[in-house]
Design a binder for these strands. Structure first.
Lengths: 105, 105
DNA sequence: ATCGAAGTTTGACAGCGATCGTACTTATGC
DNA sequence: GCATAAGTACGATCGCTGTCAAACTTCGAT
């Protein structure tokens, strides 16, 4: 294992894929938590109520859609929001979801 | 039949509902076609490759999410995009989907 | 009054995806 | 080396949703 998993380039971002990733509340919560943090967050440190195997699945979906970047630090996998790249391809999309009004709804 | 179906008010818009509506390609196509048109479009006039009953289902999902408004004109049901209202509650969301770059992806 | 056009409703079906437990892998620390 | 911690991989379920056909409703036109 251990190696860096595959990430799509920004030029390959697909709207359908990204929306499918964002429609799940757990995944959207992950995005929101990343957006609110100044630092990378390791998989186990998120506030989500699902099992580890389910969490792995969600991170994979987010990564393959291009929304997050993952790299290993020891046995932990760190997650970064690919804000700038997503914003460039789909301007306004993440803002619409991370706005206060959006989070309350 | 004939009467105007129920529509949620803008104050009741729910992000989860709206994303679930927008994640389907057929429904997103309906939104895109409405956005590109200056006038209301009747259900039968959309360029979508699904049966009538499936189309009815999609319009219902869009309407109940608050994305479109529907009213009868004769036997036809006219559809309007609730642009301003959606923009006010979730600014940038529809723009992100109706942009040229988004449509090409 | 009849017919056709436009949608709706209902029921059925198929496929996908979120979920979990279990077993496995990899790295760190003692 | 061994135990533990952090994730991953693999099946198996199970519910949801997109799809359609068929029967029905409503309105408009003839």
């Amino acid at each position: 294992m251990g190696r860096t998993p595959p990430h799509p380039e920004a030029s390959q971002f697909d709207l359908q894929r990204i929306l499918e990733a964002l429609v799940d509340p757990v995944r959207r919560s992950i995005i929101t938590q990343l957006d609110a943090s100044d630092e990378d967050i390791k998989c186990g440190a998120f506030d989500i109520q699902v099992s580890k195997s389910t969490a792995t699945h969600h991170f994979k979906v987010l990564r393959e859609a291009g929304l997050i970047r993952q790299h290993y630090v020891g046995t932990s996998r760190m997650n970064t929001l690919r804000r700038a790249e997503v914003d460039e391809v789909f301007p306004g999309l993440l803002d619409a979801l991370t706005t206060h009004r959006a989070k309350e709804r």
